[in-house]
Amino acid sequence: MPAVAPGAPSPAPAARRRRPVAPLEPVSSRARWMLGVGFFVLFVAVWAFFTLGGFVSPTFLASPVTMVKEGYSLFTEFNFIYDIGMTVWRVFGGFALAAIIAVPLGIAMGAWKPVEAFFEPFVSFCRYLPASAFIPLLILWAGIGETQKLLVIFIGSVFQIILMVAVIVGGARKDLVEAAYTLGANSSGIVKRVLIPGAAPGIAETLRLVLGWAWTYVIVAELIGSSSGIGHMITDSQALLNTGQIIFGIIVIGIIGLVSDFAFKALNRRLFAWSTI
């Protein structure tokens, strides 16, 4: 072992050495934003290089400049803000309806095993059915109005939420449950004072994730039998081979989804500041 000269600083332990890039090593908030924005800048630069450089035909892929121009015309000439509003309403309407039904049922399945045994096979079966497969039936049952589109989002979301909530509630710490029984709590008290508070952060995170899936279902619902919405605009643009408007519509969906995701995260952090989720 090499000797260390008197008065010389001792070498830093391996655990304390600076590791700029290492597994599970956190990054600062500023670095995270710079890296995230950097990817978008790189993506747009590559896109512009291939389209403006003439490597890709405008018929198949519009350039960023053309996309911006087409987006401006959508707002100024085709009242695209109305389409955005209709899509947002459908997403949150169908998702809220699914959450109102799925969260209580998921809590019941996670808390009481007989309830889980009764519902879980059917819910698991339905979870694998694509929501788009129900569209022909929903058109027959509900027509092509708003009810049909809300039901597509509802079907695509409700079964996912039920199972995920049931797993979260069922994974509660057994020692907390036993401690509550020791202190005199009854079954309903266990659910209200132990299971639900403990699972609330996980349930909120589940709702945030499934809300992202709901955006995919609404576009599918709007592609068939719709006279408004972003999906309807994309379908019309496809018929006209207007890839600029198609790309702009896709980007608008991504931006709205990203904003709603950040808002959901901020709300969850505010409501459950004590949670590590």
Rank of each mutant, 00 (worst) to 15 (best):
A199F: 06
F248M: 11
L97T: 08
I256Q: 04
A15H: 12
W89D: 06
L183M: 15
A15N: 05
L209G: 12
A98N: 04
S187C: 00
R19G: 00
A108F: 05
F75V: 10
I168C: 03
L74M: 14
G93L: 02
V27F: 14
F264V: 15
F119W: 14
L150V: 06
A199G: 05
I196E: 06
I277N: 08
P201V: 04
P23R: 04
P104S: 02
V65W: 14
A5M: 15
W47H: 08
P121I: 01
I256R: 10
I234S: 05
F272I: 03
R269N: 14
R90S: 01
S124H: 07
V220R: 01
T206L: 03
L271A: 09
S57H: 13
A48P: 10
P197S: 02
G244H: 13
P11K: 05
A62Y: 08
T216G: 15
Q238F: 14
F159K: 02
G257D: 00
F39I: 12
G171V: 01
V88F: 12
F119H: 07
I101G: 09
L97S: 10
I168E: 13
W47R: 07
T216E: 11
R127L: 14
G36I: 08
K149N: 00
V194E: 04
F60N: 11
V177L: 12
E77R: 15
K113Q: 12
M34N: 06
V191W: 07
A204R: 03
W112Q: 01
I84H: 04
V46E: 04
L24T: 09
W215R: 05
T182H: 05
G106W: 09
L105C: 10
R32S: 15
G53E: 08
F39L: 14
R17W: 09
L74V: 05
E222V: 02
S188T: 13
L176C: 00
V44K: 07
T216Y: 10
S227M: 09
A99M: 06
L223I: 05
Y72I: 14
G145I: 07
I256K: 10
A180P: 10
